[in-house]
Design a binder for these strands. Sequence first.
DNA 1: GGCATGGCTGGTCATTTTGACTAAAATCCT
DNA 2: AGGATTTTAGTCAAAATGACCAGCCATGCC
Lengths: 162, 162
Amino acid sequence: MNSETYQLDETDRRILLALDNDPRVPIMMLAQQLGLARGTVQTRLERLAHSGALRPNTARILPSSMGRGVSAFVSAELNQSSLNEAIDALRRIPEVLECVAPAGETDLLIRVSATDPDDLYRVSEEIRLCPGITRTSTSMILRDVIPYRTTALLSKLSGTKN
Amino acid sequence: MNSETYQLDETDRRILLALDNDPRVPIMMLAQQLGLARGTVQTRLERLAHSGALRPNTARILPSSMGRGVSAFVSAELNQSSLNEAIDALRRIPEVLECVAPAGETDLLIRVSATDPDDLYRVSEEIRLCPGITRTSTSMILRDVIPYRTTALLSKLSGTKN
DNA sequence: GGCATGGCTGGTCATTTTGACTAAAATCCT
DNA sequence: AGGATTTTAGTCAAAATGACCAGCCATGCC
């Protein structure tokens, strides 16, 4: 179910783009707006929901609306042997919004959010204390220049066979 | 409309958490599941939609489902005077999914996605050629350890006054 | 060529949901 | 305490939903 990710086709993309503003528009509106039969849209929506191609809905929530006005990237080096413990520990910190493993010197790049600089300090301390983490370096995000988006990619793909 | 971000309250958070799996559940189900009146949920949903607290729906789409299996962070240094031109140029590259300005040596941290390493090279070239960008350094994301989430934060807040 | 498959269409049906609107009760704020 | 705001619980007509269906058209396979 997770081995090969579901690939969106042109119709999926059109539906998703049409849902961009309001994910709750009635299926019939979608259908006529896209020139599809209602049943088709209904089927696609159902399929999409189970496809694993979408993050959970709460991934749409901006940290700032939860009183977390301060964001930062924490890069961490770690004791390679205890990677999994470190990840588990990180997962248990609510302020850890995201974590990736990049190639290069830093082993983990962690995105955190906090209420204020003081709180940010607390969170990065908490990260530093995770088992297996040997060194961290925090850099605050000064500005959210382009917020996460896929719209441009979606549109680019549109008009292509696949 | 953008100066002060809307702050979610406890009810908003409960609604959003309940919507996490399926953003299209009927309002009545939500209402009875949460022990609220239908009208309340209806009002909150409408308010939420206009609050600016949520990213567009397409932000839920995983790049992998668009045939973009390769992700990377590109850090860029730039000629400070032409910041805005650089940003505009970046915005016009569909593969640029996100961009933040962190404190520290790198001026911009850019998240990109590509179909394969070759394509990634092409994209980073395209970034390097943006006006005002003087130097870039690309590091591929080997693993998506914790995908973007706010659920933990939402739950943490629950049970608090605000 | 002939056939099965899968997806889309356009139609039906009974049931449920929606949006808009009440008035009254509860809650919040100062 | 008093006013403002929110929530409740109720109504209504109109619309959407989910679950069907048979027909049609591509596609791929033997």
